[in-house]
Design a protein around this nucleic acid. Structure first.
Length: 417
DNA sequence: TCTGGGGTCCTAGGACCC
DNA sequence: TCTGGGGTCCTAGGACCC
């Protein structure tokens, strides 16, 4: 049997672990630049705060209801996630970490209710994070079980293990609540009169395949208890890597954008090196604020093909700056920029190039390794390329950032006795 | 005034090969 | 009116996920 373990209101819960005074109080966590609401505690959900709502439209509601807002603190959430996942790993046969706050695991062969309950208790006790556990035969069913556990079970555990319960659950689950059925598919299904998960299990498979796709067919089969989606415990190397940010203060200044783009490129290189891969295709983009009708709009993008795949900071930064020079236009106010790298290959399987123009590749590789080693012990960007700049004028707005309680010794929790 | 940042998979159609 | 049979690779766009 497969369990889906999902942290409840994960970001909000992380913040609350270190702020017990906020227990039972409404909290929201905002996106980068303190832009949108991306996590809400149950109390905030009850007050009608929606996912993705722009924060500035809700200021008054926040104040009136004394809702505590936080800027995103991904260092904290990432570290808390690791702790939760390591508990799950040590208490299951196999684990697929599906996202920062959820994992599919293969259960031990014991009483499932006891298993789920103990797991939940352990995670809560060891990390302070509340989780919900849904157990079933397939991933799609486990998702549904989890949803029910989270919403309707005080115990936080729900098991779909016999025909009658599964049928009841499927009749109770609206088509758009199924994992893998989004807005568009849901709308089309409803036009055909298919409104619940149970309805989807009653129609002919060839029809689903014809009218929708193999992807939707697999979901339908999973609902019937036929395993189509495996637990993927090997974490796959990424096929694309993107680093992009909205600027705290929109800017027209070329140098500021150059510094930002250089930093994004370096960030991509670090991610490439971490998974031991190289890239031969870069894309960069810069754009103005589409929400601002008073400014002229522009979306500039450039694809760069490298002659030989690499993951070295210097080579890639040079290339993205060349690209930026081509797409940068004066007179626009830029809001966002980013770098995407693709055509990713293993770094030890790079196709060589007979006409390679770049000398000293080995030297660059050595330098990158040294940079990684120094920065991993001394802190990010301690050693950097000059074009990354020093004043980070483009940096994000994060006015309500909490401490890095678990990863910085000088920000550790203080207890007053 | 202020609106996030990542990813994956599949399909259709075009261009090409023998 | 009739016009083979088999492939691959690439791209854009759509749909979905957190």
């Amino acid at each position: 049997m497969i369990a889906l373990v999902d942290c409840n209101n994960f970001y909000a819960s992380c913040e609350r672990v270190f702020r017990p005074d906020l227990e039972n109080k409404p909290i929201v966590v905002l996106s980068n630049n303190d832009g949108c609401v991306i996590a809400r505690s149950n109390e905030a959900k009850k007050l009608g705060i929606k996912m993705g709502e722009p924060a500035f439209k809700k200021r008054e509601v926040f104040e009136r209801n004394k809702i505590k807002t936080f800027s995103t603190n991904f260092i904290l959430y990432g570290d808390m996630s690791k702790r939760v996942m390591s508990i799950l790993r040590n208490n299951s046969k196999e684990i697929e970490i599906y996202s920062i706050d959820e994992a599919f695991i293969e259960c031990y062969n014991e009483d499932l209710n006891t298993y789920g309950t103990n797991l939940r208790k352990k995670v809560k006790q060891w990390t302070g994070i509340p989780v919900s556990v849904g157990i079933a035969e397939t991933k799609v069913l486990a998702k549904i079980a989890n949803h029910i556990a989270k919403k309707y079970r005080k115990s936080g555990v729900f098991i779909l293990d016999n025909k009658e319960i599964i049928e009841r659950a499927l009749k109770f689950t609206a088509i758009e609540e199924i994992w893998g059925i989004g807005r568009n598919h849901a709308k089309r299904f409803k036009e055909y009169g298919i409104n619940t998960a149970h309805d989807l299990t009653c129609i002919e498979e060839s029809w689903i395949k014809r009218k929708f796709s193999i992807v939707v067919l697999r979901i339908a089969q999973e609902l019937k208890g036929i395993k189509c989606l495996d637990i993927e415990s090997q974490h796959k190397t990424k096929k694309n890597i993107c680093t992009s940010r909205s600027f705290g203060n929109p800017t027209s200044d070329y140098n500021t954008i150059k510094e930002a783009i250089s930093t994004f490129a370096v960030r991509c290189c670090e991610k490439l090196r971490k998974q031991k891969t190289s890239t031969s295709e870069l894309r960069i983009f810069i754009y103005t604020n589409p929400f601002n009708p008073r400014h002229k709009q522009y979306y500039g993008t450039k694809k760069i093909q490298l002659e030989r795949a690499t993951n070295d900071n210097q080579i890639i930064v040079q290339e993205v700056i060349k690209g930026l020079q081509e797409i940068y236009k004066k007179g626009y106010v830029y809001k966002k920029a980013g770098v995407i790298v693709g055509s990713i290959t293993q770094e030890n399987q790079v196709q060589l190039n007979l006409f390679d123009q770049i000398k000293n590749r080995e030297k660059y590789t050595k330098i990158s390794k040294v940079i990684d080693r120094i920065n991993s012990s001394m802190g990010r960007d301690k050693l950097r390329i000059a074009t990354q700049g020093f004043d980070r004028k483009w940096k994000m707005k994060q006015e309500q950032l909490s401490q890095c309680y678990t990863t910085r010794i000088d920000e550790i929790l203080t207890v007053k006795v």
